[in-house]
């Protein structure tokens, strides 16, 4: 019995790997096609967003604020924010949109959420690396003081965004009201995303409240890793991860429930 289990697990992982691989390629082809730069389009949007907003801020507010370069500050804020807004938007009605794939039993509806998330995550990461490299060449971006902390912050941010997707995907299937409210909610979220403010700018009394937002913890970690000693950052690693775990657990239960009700044409 005990010898059967690991091989079944390995078999399952193999199938899972194949499915994710196939779905990613399928999604990339349907979304970006094979013309011109193909799948590289997935980094263009975050790149343009972060780049153009950074230029506008640079023109409106000068080159530095609170002792850090405005351009670099906006880029480190906008890249994560784009990830969050894109993945949440892409999770809405994700099951109905892909329902024809339910014909293949090895594809689970959870795979759709994973695949769309991975594509957005890769796209924003590529955009970040690209834009940061260029800015470093022009001396407008610091060389990360603590790359480990920067990557850890990014992963914390991603983990929380992913757990939100796991909840929003099934909820959007259950209620159409949610779909209507989502765009405005993600917009209102911006001040609590940590993208355009630092915790240290707030009065000490307010700091603990803004840190209730898991996003803020992730962005603070990223910026702490990039600027090192130049910035004072406040964060907790375990709190956002804990929230993500709870949200993921709720999301997985909801996904199971929705699966039973999906009607496929």
């Amino acid at each position: 019995m005990s010898s059967v289990k690991p091989s079944r697990l390995r078999q399952g992982l193999k199938v899972q790997g194949r499915v994710i691989h196939a779905l990613i390629i399928r999604e990339l082809i349907t979304r970006f096609g094979r013309e011109n730069i193909g799948f590289l389009w997935m980094m263009v949007e975050p790149l343009l967003f972060a780049g153009l907003v950074a230029i506008i801020w640079r023109m409106m507010r000068g080159s530095e604020e609170h002792g850090v370069s405005i351009v670099a500050f906006v880029v480190t804020g906008y890249i994560p924010l784009t990830l969050f807004r894109h993945v949440v938007g892409r999770s809405v009605a994700i099951f109905q949109a892909n329902s024809s794939l339910m014909y293949h039993r090895q594809i689970q509806i959870l795979d759709f959420v994973i695949v769309r998330f991975l594509i957005e995550m890769l796209g924003t990461m590529m955009a970040f690396v690209f834009i940061a490299t260029i800015l470093i060449c022009f001396d407008a971006f610091p060389i990360p003081a603590d790359p480990g902390l920067m990557i850890a912050g990014w992963l914390v941010y991603c983990a929380f965004s992913f757990s939100l997707c796991l909840m929003i995907a099934p909820l959007s299937e259950m209620s159409e009201v949610l779909e209507k409210f989502l765009p405005v909610t993600t917009y209102i979220m911006i001040p609590f995303s940590g993208s355009f403010t630092m915790v240290s700018w707030l009065s000490p009394g307010l700091r603990q409240y803004i840190l209730w937002s898991p996003f803020v913890n992730g962005v603070e970690m990223m910026r702490g890793g990039i600027w090192g000693e130049h910035l004072v950052v406040y964060y907790d690693v375990w709190y956002p991860l804990g929230v993500s775990m709870i949200f993921s657990a709720i999301g997985l239960v909801l996904i199971r429930r929705v699966r039973r009700k999906i009607v496929v044409e």
């Binding site: 193999k14 194949r18 499915v19 196939a22 349907t30 293949h104």
Partner: peptide, 15 residues
């Protein structure tokens, strides 16, 4: 997707 792309997709998920 084209017929070939669909075939490639099916080939991938069924190994």
């Amino acid at each position: 997707l084209t017929g070939y792309d669909n075939a490639r997709f099916i080939a991938r998920i069924y190994g």
